[in-house]
Design a protein around this nucleic acid. Structure first.
Lengths: 341, 341
DNA sequence: CTGTTAGCGCGTTCAT
DNA sequence: ATGAACGCGCTAACAG
């Protein structure tokens, strides 16, 4: 049946045992697993291969990394793993990682500054080869010092004073698409709903683009609201206040869409007859709410893949100045922005 | 020749440099960072501490792991990272990990047998100390051989012929709660909607418990449907067929709830006036759909935490026979099961 | 209390 | 084409 019952608890097969079993030196085995198989005589290569098979030998990545400086490990710092956007991007990253032989260490900071710091220390201690960061980056100092040691790419959020590659959404374009659509559908009185403006660059960019566009469009009137304590009453105020025409909400991301829809329901609105809604991100439940929520989908898988590939190029020696990848959002029309006016 | 200019690209501060800077031997520094600080003279400890601070030294976990056999790394195998349940559990696991100084390597198999195998190999090569598995486990062999080497705990799903700790839901109890509630609310004609029965133990258990309970309750009639190709028309058939009384759907998990609700909408049902719905898992959008979806919430955070702590005990030498942790679901009543009949 | 020595598992010169 | 020897960064055993 099985060969020499391999790997008792704790003791795993090492390169030396393989070498001995194959009657060669460790160096030859090392060459075999390192891809220099062409430098070996066919006969020896064969014997090594068989020995590896028989002993079920698996090279110890830690030891390899120690010597070569390559751990094949990528770290990812996520601000909020319960945010579907983050998970979707992470999914893309993970897939790309695996396809290239890398593994992913995911660290969730839960929006906590302290945890971010703790995780950064851990990632560094594990010699991750590169870092994908989707965080507020309140530890600009630590991040910067880490960026001196290894490649880093930011996802969705810039980090102040950190000159790194960035993969995210073309927020300006997304906001324009949203306003174009709302305007064309006859909405006139708009409310942008955002999560708290805590410095997250993408949130800020969306708000800035929104107010900028509103100022540029005489037909439209717009204001900005943040979710949180006072959100409910501010929203109610918006709903009853007189305005230039039909009202609509613009949720700046999936979490805001959730909060906004919840409040609308609790305030007794019929979704979405009295008020329109368009939301950034496209979550799987959007079609199910009321007449369906119109969305601006982010290409999350592509964002994740791009982030990893960007990192990969840096790992391969690319020293160009920091690049930005701005993906376009895709409008998906549902019932929440039915024609008005 | 040059002073230890800290951390140039690629070269990190090592224990030797610290030792030299502090004027002591590597061993002393090792003792310092290893927690044997009490064995050091106050004076030397102080100097070492200062040198570490000044050079910004971080011990290399890979090297430590290589020597001590402890990597402080936990691996987690997830079947579908886009499933909110998995992410929620993972969140719990990650939190527990961090609190105990471990880091988490997450591997998503995307329900692919091949990827599962690939990831297992990777995890092993990184010397993870333990494994948390939430997969179909079609590679029972590889899993078994890995389990011989390191502790392992299953989450939500059993793996055939694998004697390991299991943390999950009391499916029998959950189904009973659901049927009690539906029955009490006047529903009589029930349809369990499950993702395809591909061997996932929790799915099978819910189905078995359902049919068992139905057989035991003369008032109720029930059948089982799997999502997929034929789901839509089978559902329609159920909706129009004559039955013993008011009809209700029982979604066996969040994904099934999504599929079921979607189809109900597309079939033109008014949610949830003509038909009731109760769903296992409690997703954040349940309150927003129709009159709100009644849920049986799983304590996902607790499940994740328990899984890790279970692993931790094994790591600390616990050799007891495999244990099972069955958590109870919690009923959260919303509009989708308003009183009928 | 502290330094010296000897590896952990592996990759990489050098030789041959 | 292959092997011997050394070292990666660190801990552990044994001196002193």
């Amino acid at each position: 049946m099985n060969g020499p019952s391999p790997s008792a608890r704790g003791s795993r097969v090492t390169i030396s045992e393989v070498a001995e079993a194959a009657g060669v030196s460790k160096a030859s085995v090392s060459r075999y697993i390192g891809g220099d198989r062409q430098l070996l005589a066919d006969a020896t290569a064969l014997r090594i291969g068989q020995a590896i098979e028989r002993l079920d030998y698996r090279p110890n990545q830690m030891a390899r990394g120690l010597k070569r400086g390559r751990t094949r490990l990528i770290g990812m710092l996520v601000a909020d793993i319960l945010n579907p956007y983050s998970v979707a991007v992470m999914h893309g990253v993970e897939t790309a990682c695996r396809q290239h032989g890398y593994s992913l260490v995911v660290c969730n900071t839960d929006r906590s500054t302290e945890q971010e710091s703790q995780h950064l220390a851990a990632l560094r201690s594990y010699n991750v080869e590169g870092l994908i960061v989707n965080t507020l980056g309140h530890h600009a100092g630590e991040l910067q010092s880490l960026h001196d040691e290894l490649p880093m790419v930011l996802v969705d959020r810039k980090v102040e004073a950190l000159e790194a590659d960035l993969v995210g959404l073309d927020n300006r374009d997304a906001v324009r698409q949203a306003l174009d659509h709302l305007q064309q559908r006859g909405y006139r009185d708009l409310l942008l709903v955002s999560e708290p403006l805590d410095g997250t660059s993408s949130r800020q960019e969306r708000v800035t683009a929104f107010t900028g566009e509103i100022a540029r469009r005489p037909l439209l009137q717009g204001q900005v609201l943040q979710t949180g304590e006072t959100f409910r009453e501010a929203l109610q105020h918006f709903l009853v206040a007189p305005g230039p025409g039909p009202k609509a909400l613009f949720a700046a991301n999936g979490m805001a869409a959730l909060a906004a829809t919840r409040q609308l329901r609790e305030l007794g609105c019929r979704l979405f007859e009295e008020i329109g809604l368009i939301a950034l991100d496209d979550l799987d439940w959007y079609p199910l709410v009321g007449s369906g929520i119109t969305a601006l989908a982010q290409p999350t898988a592509e964002i994740g893949t791009t982030a990893f590939e960007c990192l990969l190029e840096r790992l391969r020696g690319d020293r160009e100045p920091a690049r930005h990848f701005d993906f376009k959002a895709q409008l998906i029309i549902r019932g929440s922005t039915h024609p008005r006016g």
